[in-house]
Amino acid sequence: MLELIDVHTYYGNIQALKGISIHVEPGEVVTLIGSNGAGKTTTLRTIQGLLRPRQGKILFEGQDLSSSSSPEIVRLGIAQSPEGRMIFPRMTVLENLEMGAFHRQDKAGIQADMERVFTLFPRLQERIKQKGGTLSGGEQQMLAIARALMARPRLLLLDEPSMGLAPMLVNQIFSIIHEISDQGTTILLVEQNARMALTVANRGYVLQTGEIVLTGSAKELQVNETVRKAYLGEE
C-alpha cells in the first residue's frame, strides 16, 4: 500500500533521513520505533508531503507522492495525528473534528464518521462543545486521533499517541488503535513506547539516526537482543 524507497530528507543542511526504505501492506499495523531524534516524526512528515524528500521515492498504492502537495495526499487517503497533538486549541471539539473532514464534501459520510468516532471515543461526545485547549492531555490525544479519522483515511499515521499519558490511558489508547485497525484502516504507528507498540503491531522497523537498522515481525523484534536492550529497557 505504502512504500518508501531510499528516502533522504533534510532540514536545510541537516540530514534527518539517510535513505530509509519501508513498506506497509493493506490492513497491517506497522510500527516505527527509535529513540529521540531518530527521525520518526520526520518520516511521517515526509510521507504527508509536509517535507519534501531530496532523494528517493514514496509510492502510495503505486502512485508517486513526491510531487503531491499535502492537501492532495490527504485527499488520496493518508491522514495524520501529529506529534504533540496539535489540536486547534480555540476551536470546540466539534469544530476540530469538522476540520479533520475539511477536504470532504459528502455531508452524510461526514455525519456517519462523526458517529463512528464518538463510539470509539465516548469521552469526546460528552465534551463536544468544549474548547480543544481546555481538554486534558489524554482527551486531546483522543481528539487528535479522532480528527485524523474524520478524514476517512485508508492509511492512518499516528505519531506517539501514548506520549505523556498515564498507563491506564495508554492501554485505552492502544486498545482503540487495535479497534481502528480491526475496522479496516491500515496504520503506521510511531512510538517511543516500544513494548506497547509491538503488542499491537504486525511488523516493525527500528530507526536509528535516520537509518533503518532492524526490521522484522513484531514477535521477532520483541525477542531481539538489541531491541530488548535499547528499547524495552531489559537487561
Partner: peptide, 13 residues
C-alpha cells in the same frame, strides 16, 4: 490562525 502546521496536516492549502 490557530496552528499552521496542524492545518496543513488537515489538508488545508
Amino acid at each position: 490562525r490557530e496552528d499552521e502546521l496542524a492545518a496543513s496536516a488537515m489538508g488545508i492549502n
